[in-house]
Amino acid sequence: MNADKLDDIKRSANVYGCVECGRCVAACPMVDMYVNFSIEMSPRGVIKKALMGDDLVRDGNIWYCTECNAGTDVCPQGVSCRDLIRGLRQIAVEEDVSTNFNYCASCHNPFVPLPAETFVRKRLKSEPENVLDVLNLCPACRRENYMMRNA
């Protein structure tokens, strides 16, 4: 079942069309975000691993992606690295393997991968601590919260 699903995800993300041009890596914002950026976590590396049939679901490298659309936008073959990583994460959540999500403090929705959250915290480290508390809430809950306090 897992293999079928994985194959579906790869097919719908058009992974088999990848020509390894590396444009997605050039556009990927993770280069600026993480100091330990490597080929393993880059979109091309993940796609390559997916093609080789590696066990990506249990690979920690899929949790760095911010699910932006940069790689898909520039891909000449229409490969969607975002759809691939989103599908892989979905399987990881379904199979209950170790995930790397930050869960919303209010609705327990896994809304952002932890490395991305760490990056935001690092960028906002000059802000006072109580302002950064909102980072534990998912955007929907944050808006809800804001409405409750203001309306």
Binding site: T66, E67, A70, P139
Partner: peptide
Amino acid sequence: VECGLCIM
């Protein structure tokens, strides 16, 4: 690149 970190 529509990563959504500004929302975060």
